[in-house]
């Protein structure tokens, strides 16, 4: 827990994402008991880094991402992106988001989907066309541009999902399990795109189950187990201490299990 409670070293720059003491209690129905899903989660993500967010199933990763993007409201605590609350429209203008197993309008084509996003961002028509062409090329969907999304494979949906998150050239990109549903080639392509985004100075935050991806691509990562942050730090530090991110993961999960036995009902 030593790294868990300590805030990351202060930098002169405002954190790209700042999560402070985030708590979330779910109340399903008045007859059911309340459930603490996030317990004082604090993480700072620095500008320009690739940050991995890992944890076992039901740890609270998706809940954290949903609060970060305004889909859920925190019970207490705060999230700021680029120094401002996510509820502000101006901030949403500067971020890109890919939900977990994304669902889009199935009867719109790939190009129409990206155009819709461009229009929502208020981009000029010519710019929308240029960005649509550029992004369809980037995610290798140029040939499928006029195909309705219901005819896309899972991997293609994931790629158009990444493209729609980049239409506005966001400064911060938040991705929930971007590598799920992808074959090894697709996974590699998405990872390369994330590295390219970092090279452009953008901040990338993604949750994943694939620890190797964190070890090979992330600057830093946070490990969430049972709603609590168990580690925040650099990949290099974790590897130096545990030998690999996987070992760190297993060690911290065991530590959390020793505190309290696993909750079989955890599934969020």
């Amino acid at each position: 827990m030593e790294s868990a409670t300590a805030a990351p070293p202060a930098t002169s720059a405002t954190p790209a994402i700042r999560i402070r003491e985030l708590c979330k209690v779910f109340k399903d129905h008045w007859t059911r008991k309340k459930k603490l899903v996030l317990d004082k989660v604090s993480v700072d993500v620095r500008p320009g880094e690739i940050f991995g967010f890992i944890g076992p199933n039901g740890a609270g990763k998706s809940t954290t991402l949903k609060i970060m993007t305004g889909l859920l409201f925190p019970t207490s605590g705060q999230v700021e992106v680029l120094g401002r609350p996510i509820a502000e429209k101006e901030i949403r203008q500067r971020i890109g988001f890919l939900p977990e197993s994304p669902q889009f309008y199935t009867y719109l084509t790939g190009a129409e989907t990206l155009s819709l996003v461009g229009e929502i961002f208020g981009l000029p028509r010519a710019e929308i066309r240029r960005r649509t062409d550029e992004l369809l090329g980037l995610v290798r969907l140029h040939d499928a541009r006029d195909l309705a999304l219901r005819k896309y494979s899972k991997g293609m949906i994931q790629r158009i999902g990444l493209a729609q998150a980049l239409v506005n050239s966001p400064e911060v990109v938040i991705l929930d399990e971007p590598m799920s549903d992808l074959d090894p080639i697709g996974r590699r392509e998405i990872l390369d795109m994330l590295s390219a985004l970092k090279a452009q100075g953008k901040t990338v935050f993604f949750s994943t189950h694939i620890l190797y991806d964190v070890e090979s691509r992330c600057d830093r990562f946070a490990l969430l187990v049972k709603g609590r942050i168990r580690y925040v730090g650099t990949v290099a530090d974790a590897v130096a201490r545990w030998g690999s991110v996987e070992n760190a993961f297993m060690d911290k999960v065991r530590e959390a299990d020793a505190e309290s036995p696993p909750d079989p009902s955890a599934g969020r």
Binding site: L98, P99, S101, P102, Q103, F104, F121, G161
Partner: peptide, 14 residues
């Protein structure tokens, strides 16, 4: 239910 609104809700549209 289909979660097809999620991606739009995060865009700068109220």
């Amino acid at each position: 239910e289909r979660k097809s609104l999620y991606w739009l809700l995060v865009k700068p549209v109220s």
